[in-house]
């Protein structure tokens, strides 16, 4: 039986720095898996390797039994994996709704020929997508902000929009790079509630998360990464209780 997502023996060096070393793990379908580790452990690099943003020196990624090796980021989205960025990378001069529309696939008129020669067909298809985009925004609680420029949204709203934008792709496996960083209070609980809701709807989540309280509350599984190597894997309570891991995690930070 193959795992839902299987990462095997990833190695990646940037010049002299080995960002990933023989990194292997699996992610189970329908669960929230948190990827934790100190700054520079290689968490974002793993996301980049899974989503085709960088080619690992060695190693393989398999999703639902299909090899993703050598696939482009576009092909990987087609396979049902989408990721957010630690630094958001939203289209800040577009509206929230336009950002979600940008995430949706198979638009009619996304090339000039159809846009020019079949304008009515294009307009009708777009009108239908507008409704779907509004539904996605409502789902993450941003319906009221649909027509606001992203640069005018609060940071918490922008974080929610990042998730909305990749939900719009229709992906089944969502890779979220620090979705709660910089948030507190209501904004933090909004994101946490959204992640649980997505899980309940059948999505699988791999989440980079620094906040141990968040990990404790949302994670089913925890992967602990240190210097590019997976050094522990298990239930959140076990990982958090491990004094050796706490030493690595907090020792490095102080």
């Amino acid at each position: 039986m193959s795992a839902y997502l299987q990462v095997e023996g990833l190695n990646k060096s940037f010049g002299g720095l080995q960002a990933l070393r023989d990194c292997s793990f699996t992610v189970a379908q329908g669960r929230i898996t948190c990827l934790v580790g100190p700054n520079g452990a290689g968490k974002t690099t793993i996301f980049n390797a899974i989503t085709g943003f960088l080619v690992p020196d060695t190693g393989h990624v398999t999703f639902q039994g299909i090899s993703l090796d050598g696939r482009t980021s576009q092909q990987i989205v087609r396979h049902g994996i989408a990721r957010t960025f630690q630094n958001l990378r939203l289209f800040v001069d577009l509206t929230a709704r336009a950002n979600v529309l940008a995430g949706m696939q198979d638009h009619v008129g996304e090339e000039p020929f159809t846009a020019i020669f079949r304008p009515f067909h294009t307009a009708r298809a777009l009108a239908a997508k507008q409704d779907a985009a509004m539904a996605v925004l409502a789902h993450v609680g941003l319906a009221a902000q649909a027509d606001m420029l992203v640069r005018n949204l609060s940071y918490g709203e922008q974080k929610l929009l990042c998730i909305a934008r990749i939900l719009a792709t229709g992906a089944e496996l969502l890779l979220l790079d620090e979705p709660t960083s910089g948030l507190s209070g209501a904004a933090l609980s909004d994101v946490m509630a959204l992640l649980r809701r997505l899980q309940a709807e059948g999505k699988t989540l791999l989440v980079v998360e620094h906040n141990t309280r968040v990990v404790q509350q949302i994670a089913d599984d925890v992967l602990f990464l240190h210097q590019g190597h997976l050094i522990a894997q298990g239930a959140p309570a076990d990982i958090i209780a491990d004094p050796k891991l706490a030493e690595i995690y907090f020792g490095g930070a102080i």
Binding site: D93, Q105, H107, E110, E111, A115, P119, L126
Partner: peptide, 30 residues
Amino acid sequence: AFWLIMRAPFGALLRAIREDELAVAALGKS
């Protein structure tokens, strides 16, 4: 022609590309 493409998803895609190519690629677009 210009007006039609700018209001179609193609125009939206071009605007998105101008802002952030990498983010566009991450959304499965060429």
